[in-house]
Design a protein around this nucleic acid. Structure first.
Lengths: 234, 234
DNA sequence: TAGTGGTCTAGACCACGGG
DNA sequence: CCGTGGTCTAGACCACTAT
């Protein structure tokens, strides 16, 4: 193990074990350098990594201190549906239920903070995992941001994956809610009206322009989000 | 702006703009060092930061390359209820509905991967935000891991916050589901039976031992999780 | 003012891995 | 083999900030 990793895990262990409590002062860099018989820069690298993880806070003049734990910070990785299904060894397919080009309209324009006359591609798509409906995907693609969507049928590639290839990088906002299935949703998902459903809304931007807005509605009895947060992991 | 930050944002911009596409090769370190008239180590620091963000992949001998984007990775920060309410400017209070010391039992023992005869403190707690029920908290605290919970009444501090002070650091697993309110839940939350509710389950460990297991049940019409993922942010 | 972290240099040696 | 990234050194100067 490298020296800076050694220093990193040593301090991490002291914090996790409770040996060093929140607010406790960590030896200054030159002391740690002497202790581990290495240069100050190597110590600095280890402490910077700990600071980036939020385990310590560093202040000029006063030194570095053990941070207050924040176990309530949840980090979740949500893959796109097809990837997630494949990873879990499930069979995934999808159907395009609707595909039309239109204008955004007032209500949605306000919701997306985009002009109401913006041209969009509206998609509705059903995802089927192991033969059972797993999600309705209702998606808006901004055609001025992604003009090539106009010619794409999405017959062979899910819209989410296609956009990943098309748009190089982006910022996304997520909202997770619980909603009751309305009649149409229940019929498509082959469940009961009023059934609790998990809704994931994602709006994606590139360079400040909305690229796409999508809502996935999952039947509550067949879907959940799970994630693990390791403040200790590497 | 420091030199390595300059290099970082330059490359980040090229990737976000699509100027450099996934799979493209990034100049080797000594080329970038010459271009920015700095040492190779400074370049290395910038590239390492980009690699840690998942924007590039680095391979010995072959060089560094633009990574494939993963915008479907969702990072969410979920604060604990009282903190979140305070941050949003809402009034928060809570009531202890039940508090008893007992043994874990078979079914839950299996679920938590803990022995069935383990002594636990079982808590049920109602969180009220701006005068309306916002969550039922059903919690199990392992008394062998947190013996001091035996004497704590939780009259003045919510169990979640108390545990944050008591347990220095930990690993946590989260599950988010949509469930229908049963009769009891609906009564406590002052909503209808069958109402869609958002359920957050969190199991917390320290040094491999379960510390606590908690389920928060939120009425779907009064609660959602929201988060933003910035692959570009600092 | 003095102590601390933030950054940088101009080298160095090593580990890895494709040819 | 040899080009690449991974790590490290022994300094250096600067920025910030508590006192």
């Amino acid at each position: 193990m490298s020296i800076y990793q050694h220093i990193f895990t040593d301090i991490e262990t002291k914090i996790i074990s409770g040996d060093w409590r929140p607010g406790d002062r960590i030896p200054v860099e030159h002391e740690l350098a002497a202790e581990y018989r290495c240069s100050r820069m190597t110590v600095s690298k280890a402490l910077s990594a700990l600071a980036e993880r939020g385990m310590i806070v560093r202040r000029r003049k006063t030194g570095s201190f053990v941070a207050s734990p924040q176990i309530d910070r949840t980090v979740m990785d949500i893959q796109d549906i097809s990837t997630e299904a494949e990873l879990a060894g499930h069979e995934h397919r999808f159907e395009i239920l609707a595909r039309k080009i239109e204008r955004l309209g007032e209500a949605e324009a306000q919701q997306l903070s985009e002009p109401a006359d913006a041209e969009i591609l509206r998609l509705q798509c059903l995802h089927i995992v192991d033969g059972r409906p797993n999600a309705i995907e209702r998606r808006i693609i901004m055609l001025d941001a992604v003009p090539r969507a106009r010619e794409e049928s999405f017959a062979s590639i899910p819209p989410g994956k296609w956009l990943l290839d098309e748009v190089p990088w982006s910022k996304a906002k997520h909202v997770i809610r619980a909603v009751s299935a309305d009649t149409t949703t229940a019929r498509i998902l082959q469940t009961e009206r009023g059934e609790a459903c998990l809704s994931l809304i994602r709006q994606t931007w590139q360079n400040g322009r909305t690229v796409t807005y999508v809502e996935f509605t999952h039947p509550g009895d067949r879907f959940q989000f799970a994630g693990t947060f390791h403040p200790t992991a590497n």
